[in-house]
Structure formats: C-alpha cells, structure tokens
Design a binder for these strands. Structure first.
Length: 584
DNA sequence: ATTAGGG
DNA sequence: CCCTAAT
C-alpha cells in the first residue's frame, strides 16, 4: 500500500470540510426523507446489500468495494480509487488475519456478550459499567454500513482485555441518558436479527426517529429506520465523547451488539483517529484512515492533536470559524520546508557529529523549481526521510557561492581584466557562449549542501539554488542584453544572451541588474570619499561597468518604452568611448 | 508565463 | 536567491 507516495492527497482541510459539519446538518442531508438530496453516502444508505457481521468475520471489503456505496468523485476527487482500494485490501486482510488469530473462545465470548443483550432484550441500555466493560481497547476503525448495519472493527481486536484507564463514566452516562430517553430499543444487536428492533412497529421507529433527529420521516422501511437510528445514536455518542476520546487515547464501546470502536492510538499515534467514529460513514472512516497515515509522517503529535481538536470543536457545535480559518489557512510552502528543516536538523543532531549552520532561519531549502515538482499539490506530500547515510560522518554547510564558474574566480576583480570581455563583446549575440561549466553541478554533488532529501527522496530535488557568482562575461552579456532589449525585457534578454545557460533565469537577470544598479549608485557616493583610485577592490564590478549600468538605467527608465532602437546601440557605444570595455 | 518588487 | 502579486 504505497499511498504515501501519491501526490493526490486529500488534505485534512478537505476532510474537515467534508465531514465536520454539525450534526444537525448531517442529519438534514443524510436523513432527508426524499433521499435525493444527499449525495455520496446516500448510495449505501439506501442500498442495503452486504450483510456480513463482525462475528462471522467475513467482512468482505471487496464486495463492499464493488457496490459503489460511495462515489469516489464525490469526495473532492482527491482520494484516488486505488488508494482506497489499497486501503480496503489492507483492512480486509488485516481483518481476516485477525479473525483467524482470534481464538474461538474469544469469539464466543463476544457472541455471548451480544447474545446476553439480545436475551436481555427489552429496553435496557447498558449501564455505564457495561459500556466500560464492553470497551474494546483497540486500534479500530469503525466501519458501519447503514444498509445492513454491519459493523466491523479492524486492528487489534483485543477481545480479552479491557482498557484499564477507561474509567470515565461521564460520557457513558451521557450515552445512557441520551439514548434511553428517546431510543429505547437501539441497543438491539445486529440489525437483521434483532428481535428488539424487529418488535418495534414502524410507528415506534418513527417516533424514535423523530425524537432523535427532530424531524419526521416518511420512510416506512424498518430496516432503514433502524439503521438510521443507530447511526444517529452513534453520532451523538461520538459527539458527546469526542474530546474525551482524544484525551483518553483509546476507547470503544458497544451499542447493542454493535461494537463501535474509537481509537486514537493507532500506529500513527495521531489522535485524529477518534474522529473516525464520528464519521460513522465508512467512507469517511476510510478517508481518515488513509489520511491519517499520510499525515502521520508530516505532522508531529502536537499538530495532529491540534487539528483534531479543531475538528471536534467544529463538530461540537457552531464553531465554524475554526473550520473556516483552517480551510483558509493556506499552508505556506515555507511551512513544509521548515518542518522539513526541523526534522532534518533533528536528524542531524541525532546522528551526532554533523554541524550545520543555517545562515538564516528563513533560508529556503529548496529551489522553487524543484519544489514545485516535489509538492505538486502543495501539501502533505513527501514525508521527510532522514537517511542516516546522508549524515554519516561530519558534514559542513558549505557557504553559498563556492561553486565557481569556468574555473576562474571572478570575485577577484582581476577577472574583469581578462579577455573574455572582448570575447563577449565580439561574439555575436546569437552565438551562445556557453559559459556553463558543469563544475557547479558537480560541486553541488560533491560538497552537497548538507541536506538529506537529495539522496533520500527524489534526486530531482535540488535544494536552494546555489549562489553562483556572476562572471564578468555574464555581466557583460547582461548589459549588452539590456542595451539591446531594454530594461525589463528579461525574458528576451535571457533568450538572446543566455539561451544556453540553464541557470540565470530571467528573474536572475532582473535581480542582477537591480544589484548592478544599486552598486553603481552606491559606488558613486563611495567614490567621493575614497578617491584613491584604487582598483575596485571592494567590488568585482569595475567602475566603468557600473557607469554604464547607470547610463543604461537612464536610457531605459525601466519601462518598456525603449527610447533607442537597436541601431542606437552603436551610438551608445561610441558615446561611451572605446575604452569602455576595459577597465578605465 | 513574465515582470516587478519585497525579503 | 526566494517568494509573491500583478499583469
């Protein structure tokens, strides 16, 4: 089940959005008498088909799967069919395995419990103690089919033991009060063989329905009514318990013969799990199941529990703002990065002798380009994997700008004296002077930037673009480009002058030009003071170049309007003097 | 997709 | 260099 690598994740926001509507809203949509308004889950609400029960251990997910109980498309199209299927398969096998592993005694015990209640019959709801005793501590996902009222628990079906710390009775008492008041018969067991429910007349069921949902229904199908009543009951129970469940960590309880399991201690360690039972709808449960796994890697425990709280709050009633806020909160890409950064840092620390110093906390780890590739949907993807190999031994964060182009360092102003000036000038503009050595790349690979993702996940993920110093020839090409095309037409300049250069995007050109401009004016003022006429030791860009930059900046006042045609370029050069391209 | 501008 | 908003 390789769901984590999929990029079409459903985000928690979407989940929350879809399923955290207030109960009353759920009520309206799911139990509309017309049956037509509700979408998605409606399919299986009215189409009872599968009737396996839990104890039989024959929960056929494939059958379920093929019945179109839900329409994948309905769920924002974000959950891929395959994923769901994969999940179901896993669940299925899991369940099967579990069922096989369970001893007959345990199964019998379970049957007995159910049977007792059936025999007990009548209208007695389980007491608090019974609720507690019935609790099955487990990693269970409740999957409830409203058509057949089938319920299944997957995960650790620890039938023999009960959660020791399940001592809170408040919620259980609430359950009793709430349900016994209006729905006396809901304790009954597996629907189709429930004598108690069967005993109820349609009218009684209607009454129960009305008292529970506050509205009447014209549906006369007893099965339908029973299932919806159970559904409603469970919803309310969950609503009442929601927050408690999170704190408690794990719980499950039984309503009638149905085991409703909630857990917040599944493998992901996320409290989100407890929402599963709030979303009685199995598709929802599955959705969360999938989702939880996906987020387990990204979220810290803290985050996920926070999320859960928010969701439950909204469920609890009326706090739409939280949901809205959550939805609006567009997780900044930086968030992902920084969380990655944190983890990576953590990993490094963990691995010991790796000393990495980040220049700024906001330092981006990935270049935009690669990041776009990495996170097509922006969120929730690509769990950070820290591979030890990456950090074996010590590594040092290499300062940016180390990679040198063409083997010559032009931070030394001497490079401006070199001949590539002339070369550049003489070269025809269309003639690509590919000054792109691969040294930079290889440098990149050799020294790396100290981050792990490169080796671990996609190698496409080059990280923050190294600062590649501009060579003199590049600067000249830039200037020439500006001269020809004018300021602002960076794309064109890039095409003209840097077409062979993989780096140096138009934005880079723009940035560089801005820097040049800045430098040129800064230099004007500094020059007054330090008139020593020393060769610009401080800056690699010679004065003449800066001068020309200024010239161009006035020539092309940074708007599209080009005062000069290309033909004027020669004039300009003439005006600048023959020595322009040499250090003056 | 490009460009401008802030960081 | 990165990011974002505005074209």
């Amino acid at each position: 089940m390789n769901i984590t690598s999929k990029d079409s994740l459903i985000t928690s926001d979407e989940i929350a959005n879809m399923f955290t509507s207030k109960f009353s809203e759920v009520d309206l949509s799911l139990f509309a008498a017309s049956e037509q308004e509700a979408i998605g889950v409606e399919h299986f609400l009215v189409e009872p088909k599968c009737n396996q029960n839990l104890l039989g251990g024959a929960f056929d997910f494939e059958a379920f799967h093929s019945q179109k109980f839900f329409d994948v498309e309905d769920f924002s199209g974000a959950i891929e069919y395959d994923e769901i299927k994969a999940d179901f398969n896993a669940v299925h096998s899991n369940l099967t395995r579990e069922a096989q592993e369970e001893t007959p005694e345990l199964l019998e015990e379970m049957l007995q419990v159910a049977g007792d209640e059936v025999l007990d019959g009548k209208t007695r709801l389980p007491t608090c103690e019974e609720f507690i005793l019935d609790a099955k501590p487990a990693d269970e996902v409740t999957i409830l089919d409203h058509g057949s009222c089938k319920v299944s628990c997957v995960g650790n079906m620890d039938l023999g033991r009960y959660s020791p710390d399940f001592h809170e009775r408040d919620s259980a008492a609430e359950i009793s009060n709430m349900s016994s008041a209006s729905v006396p018969a809901l304790e009954s067991t597996h629907n189709q063989k429930s004598p108690v429910l069967d005993k109820m007349t349609v009218q009684e069921l209607h009454e129960a329905f009305k008292s529970m949902f506050g509205r009447e229904t014209s549906v006369t199908d007893k099965q339908w009514l029973k299932c919806h009543l159970l559904f409603g009951l469970q919803n309310q129970v969950e609503l009442n318990n929601g927050l408690n469940l999170i704190k408690r960590g794990t719980t499950s309880y039984k309503i009638g013969g149905k085991t409703v399991c909630s857990s917040s201690c599944d493998s992901s360690g996320s409290a989100t799990g407890s929402i599963n039972s709030v979303l009685v709808d199995k598709t929802m449960a599955i959705g969360w199941h999938v989702e939880r796994k996906k987020f387990a890697d990204l979220n810290t425990l803290k985050t996920s529990s926070e999320d859960s709280k928010i969701d439950l709050c909204s469920l609890d009633g009326g706090d739409e703002a939280l949901v809205t806020q959550k939805r609006l909160r567009k997780p900044p890409k930086r968030y992902i990065e920084e969380s990655m950064e944190d983890k990576s840092r953590y990993c490094k620390k963990k691995n010991g002798d790796c000393e990495v110093v980040y220049k700024e906390s906001r330092e981006k780890l990935l270049s935009v380009r690669s990041r776009k590739h990495l996170y097509p949907k922006g969120f929730g993807a690509a769990p950070m994997v820290c591979q030890d190999k990456s950090f074996k031994g010590s590594c040092i964060q290499v300062p940016f700008g180390l990679p040198v182009e063409e083997g010559h360092t032009e931070t030394d102003s001497s490079s401006w004296n070199s001949e590539d000036f002339k070369d550049d000038r003489l070269s025809s503009p269309n003639e690509e002077v590919d000054t792109e050595p691969h040294s930079a790349r290889s440098q990149d690979d050799i020294c790396g930037d100290g981050f792990s993702t490169r080796s671990s996940t996609q190698k496409v993920s080059s990280h923050r673009k190294h600062h590649i110093s501009w060579t003199s020839s590049e600067v000249m090409k830039l200037i020439e480009g500006v001269t020809r095309c004018g300021v602002g037409r960076w794309a064109e300049i890039k095409r003209l002058m840097f077409s062979s250069s993989s780096r140096r995007t138009p934005v880079d050109l723009k940035d560089k030009w801005r820097n040049l401009l800045r430098a040129s004016y800064a230099q004007l003022q500094c020059k007054r003071k330090v008139k020593q006429g020393q060769k610009q030791v401080s800056n690699q860009v010679p004065e003449s170049v800066l001068w020309r930059v200024r010239e161009l900046s006035t020539t092309y006042p940074y708007q599209r309007e080009r005062k000069f045609k290309i033909a004027d370029y020669d004039m300009l050069l003439v005006n600048l003097g023959p020595n322009f391209f040499h250090i003056g």
